[in-house]
């Protein structure tokens, strides 16, 4: 007698917990071959707002952690992700309909990017900041600090690599994020949430919403407690409206990108969601 498998319930990831959508809505996820895989939670405006609250609450702790500590947590994400490699490969093969080799390459690259960004956490300040030689008796230094709460529409055509490449750099400096997952391939995003939840990442630092980006993104773009909006994966949306809405509270906006690897790793992905703070202090005359 064959054993009946236990399918997973795919829920949202908000404040370190896995709630269903408060709206009670779900949407069907089917494999590339058309088989039913799951009823994913379809996030609502309320879920998005809850996620922003959770992200804001987590902000001071994550930003206040040392770079060394953040680096270790992000490296831990890579460790745990590596340990669940087979699960992610199977999920990607099933949902994207790609070969096992292609799925493996995607997972491996995602793991390696977590490692790459983890290493930046205690270094980017040295590269992006500097002392300033001002004309007077002052100690003067400029350092980058996290922008705050970043809402991200992740690349939509990728299961795991897209979301990894979009959120890891924002986390390096201490931002907290509200993520709108790929609408077509949301399962790996929730799989990643399970990885994050077991990687010592404080609850609320990453919040992941599955559902319709077209429905959720406007609530985040117009939310007064969101500091930045990364539209990197929003090329298919009415994104000019989102940019216009984000102007109301001067959210920092990154525009949609395109191409085969639209979130390739770079230092500017870290610094784009930082604010340069310049501190002057008097020196006494001796």
């Amino acid at each position: 007698m064959t054993r009946l498998a236990i399918p997973k319930t795919y829920k949202l990831f908000i404040g370190g917990k896995f709630p269903r959508s408060e709206s009670g809505r779900v949407f069907e996820i089917r494999s590339a071959k058309g088989e039913f895989l799951a009823n994913a939670a379809k996030a609502s405006r309320k879920d998005a707002r809850d996620a922003v609250v959770a992200a804001r609450a987590a902000g001071s702790g994550w930003a206040g952690a040392t770079g060394y500590n953040r680096g270790q947590v992000l490296y831990r994400v890579a460790e745990v992700l590596e340990g669940r490699r087979d699960q992610f490969i199977a999920e990607i093969v099933s949902t994207e309909g790609v070969s096992a080799a292609a799925a493996a390459a995607q997972v491996d690259e995602a793991v390696d990017r977590w490692v790459w960004y983890a290493g930046w956490a205690d270094k980017y300040v040295q590269v992006a900041g500097n002392a300033n030689a001002v004309s007077g008796p002052f100690f003067n230094i400029s350092v980058p600090e996290p922008t705050g709460v970043v809402a991200i529409v992740v690349p939509q055509d990728s299961s795991l690599l897209g979301i990894t490449s979009a959120i890891a750099p924002a986390l390096v400096s201490g931002n907290t994020v509200v993520v709108i997952a790929s609408e077509r391939f949301p399962l790996s995003s929730i799989g990643l949430a399970e990885v994050l939840a077991t990687s010592d990442l404080p609850g609320g630092v990453v919040n992941i919403l599955t559902g319709s980006p077209a429905e959720i993104a406007p609530w985040l773009a117009s939310h007064a407690d969101v500091n930045a909006l990364d539209l990197i994966g929003a090329a298919g949306l009415d994104w000019i409206d989102l940019e216009i809405a984000a102007a109301e509270t001067l959210q920092r906006v990154m525009r949609p990108e395109q191409g085969p690897d639209i979130a390739s790793p770079s230092l500017t992905r870290i610094t784009q969601f930082t604010e340069t703070k310049t501190v002057w202090h008097t020196k006494s005359l001796i």
């Binding site: 030689a133 001002v134 004309s135 002052f138 400029s142 340069t276 310049t278 002057w280």
Partner: peptide, 9 residues
């Protein structure tokens, strides 16, 4: 205090 070498914003 302002200085051309000091970022402001």
């Amino acid at each position: 205090k302002f200085d051309p070498a000091s970022p402001f914003g």
